[in-house]
Write a protein that binds this DNA or RNA. Structure first.
Lengths: 135, 135
DNA sequence: TCTATAGTTAGCTTCATGGCTAACCAATTG
DNA sequence: CAATTGGTTAGCCATGAAGCTAACTATAGA
């Protein structure tokens, strides 16, 4: 678990660079050699290889050399684990937001009840307001 | 679009640091002051403020000062846009994989047909394999 | 075998990042 | 008013990231 966090460090750091993000996007469409990958970029090969290495060390990329050509492919596990992190945070955030909404709703109701106490007062109708609206 | 990429740079770079990821996770549970946020970390306040600033500039965090206390909250748009990036890549990757699977399936069928041409080759078993099981 | 191709290694610059201390506002509070 | 609290600014330092060139290795092809 603590190990995974350290991998998250590397995955996010890898994806923070536009060149590396472009490489990942390209590899989503299928495997390619280093030369093919490097071609669209105006960059010396050693510099480009550093990016490949960063991606490989982060676990986002696997490569294999046969003859004199190294073929790279995406290894999606790291990508998925990063995506999971987002989904987890979003779940927590949305749960909190649901609670907050329920709280505001309760406040509104109490204020309304305070404004016209002639009406049936503290009704405390707990409307869940489940708001699953994908947004 | 190109503009968004530049924001992705900042968001991913911000999330590459475990301290900042912890701040984001904490803020998912609700807003907090700088002091409250900094408390669990063994770090001088100016250093910590740099992290806050990085998060704010990436668009992940909003803050507001009232009196002498600055309150921070998460602004989820940046988080969502990063999550969108992952989902987009995964969609492409899965589409490619489905095509690849279909291709392998076709190869298998052709090989089976070549092996025993007497039988009427199996009907095109189109198993979509929609792989929605990821979660 | 000779040459061109595809990567690789080594070593160098430059700049950003992440940390620190010290000093400095500006609100609260006694 | 004086002291404390909460944050801010300025400036320093060490490390690492991102780029380059030059030289090298090893395979493929003529």
């Amino acid at each position: 678990m603590a190990n995974q966090l350290s991998q998250l460090d590397q995955v996010f750091a890898a994806l923070a660079d536009p060149t590396r993000r472009a490489i990942v996007m390209r590899l989503c469409a299928g495997e390619a050699s280093v030369g093919e990958l490097a071609d669209p970029f105006d960059m010396a090969l050693p510099s480009f290889m550093k990016h490949i290495h960063v991606l490989e060390q982060s676990g986002l990329l696997q490569s294999e050399k046969s003859g004199r050509v190294r073929t790279c492919r995406l290894s999606p596990d790291a990508l998925l684990s990063a995506e999971d992190w987002f989904q987890h945070q979003r779940a927590i955030w949305e749960a909190r937001l649901d609670r907050f909404e329920a709280y505001v709703m309760k406040l509104k109701k109490e204020r309304a009840a305070a404004k016209r106490p002639s009406k049936s007062a503290e009704k405390t109708t707990n409307k869940p307001s489940k708001r699953k609206g994908t947004e």
